[in-house]
C-alpha cells in the first residue's frame, strides 16, 4: 500500500514537472475558465445573478474546463509513446494514483482562480465561506476522480479528446447535481450542516468510483 502511494507520488512528480515545462493543461483549463466567465460577465453588464444560476454556472465552468484539460495527462503518454515505459516501470495502480493526484491538484488550482473571478467579475456574494469551500473541495475531488478514470479509457480508445465530455457527463452527473445544490445552499448563507447530504453523496460517490477505478485500471491500461 505504502509502496503504491510512494510510486504514485513519483508518477505525480513526473507529471507535475512535465506540466510546468509545457503548461499545456494549465493553459487549456485556465484560459477556458477565464474566457467563459469573461463572456458571461461581459454580456450581463451590471446585472447580478441569483445564487441558483451562479451555482450552476460555477460547476458548468469547472466541468467544461476539466473536460478541456484533464484527459491530457493520459493522452500525452500515448502521443509521445512514453506509456509503454510507464507500463514497464510502474504497477498500473501507481500510475492511476499519480494521474489522479495530478488532476486533483490541477482542478483544485483552477478553483483558486475561478472563485475570485466569480466574486470580482460576476459579483457573487458568498453567504457561508466554510460551506462554499467544503462543497468546492469535495466536488473537485469527485470530479477529478471520475474524469481521471474516464480519461484513461479515452486515451487508449484512440478517439482522444473528442469523446471525453460525452462520456464523462453522464457518469459525472450525480457529482454535478449534488455539487450545484450544495453550492447554492452555501451561496445563500446556509450552514455547513445544510450541505450535509450533498457532502455525503459526493464523498460516497468518490469512494465508489475510485474503488472501481482501482479494480479496472489494469484492464484499461493493458495494451
Amino acid at each position: 500500500m505504502l509502496s503504491l502511494l510512494s510510486k504514485g507520488l513519483v508518477v505525480f512528480r513526473k507529471d507535475l514537472r512535465l506540466e510546468f515545462r509545457s503548461l499545456y493543461a494549465l493553459n487549456a483549463i485556465g484560459l477556458f475558465a477565464v474566457t467563459t466567465i469573461t463572456a458571461v460577465s461581459f454580456s450581463l453588464g451590471p446585472v447580478r445573478l441569483e445564487p441558483n444560476i451562479l451555482a450552476a454556472l460555477f460547476w458548468v465552468v469547472i466541468f467544461f474546463s476539466a473536460m478541456s484539460g484533464l484527459a491530457h495527462v493520459f493522452i500525452r503518454e500515448e502521443e509521445q509513446d512514453t506509456g509503454d515505459m510507464l507500463r514497464l516501470v510502474f504497477p498500473p495502480n501507481a500510475v492511476l494514483v499519480g494521474k489522479w493526484l495530478f488532476n486533483i491538484v490541477l482542478l483544485g488550482g483552477l478553483c483558486l482562480l475561478i472563485i475570485p473571478l466569480f466574486v470580482i467579475m460576476l459579483g457573487a456574494e458568498v453567504g457561508n465561506w466554510p460551506a462554499m469551500l467544503a462543497m468546492t473541495a469535495s466536488g473537485v475531488f469527485a470530479m477529478a476522480t471520475v474524469s481521471t478514470v474516464i480519461a484513461a479509457i479515452i486515451a487508449l480508445s484512440g478517439s482522444r479528446g473528442a469523446l471525453f465530455a460525452v462520456m464523462t457527463f453522464p457518469v459525472a452527473l450525480p457529482v454535478l447535481m449534488t455539487a450545484i445544490h450544495g453550492t447554492r445552499v452555501a451561496l445563500e448563507g446556509g450552514q455547513l450542516a445544510d450541505c450535509g447530504n450533498d457532502l455525503k453523496v459526493l464523498f460516497s460517490f468518490t469512494i465508489v468510483i475510485m474503488t472501481v477505478g482501482f479494480l479496472l485500471f489494469e484492464t484499461i491500461w493493458r495494451k
Binding site: 474516464i150 479509457i153 453522464p170 447535481m177 453523496v201 479496472l216 484492464t219
Partner: peptide, 22 residues
C-alpha cells in the same frame, strides 16, 4: 469490447446514484 466493458461497469456503478439516491 474491453474498453466498452469497463465503461459499462463504471456507468453501472454510477447508476444507483441517480436511480435511487439523487
Amino acid at each position: 469490447a474491453r474498453l466498452a466493458a469497463v465503461y459499462a461497469i463504471i456507468a453501472g456503478v454510477a447508476m444507483p446514484f441517480f436511480m435511487f439516491i439523487v
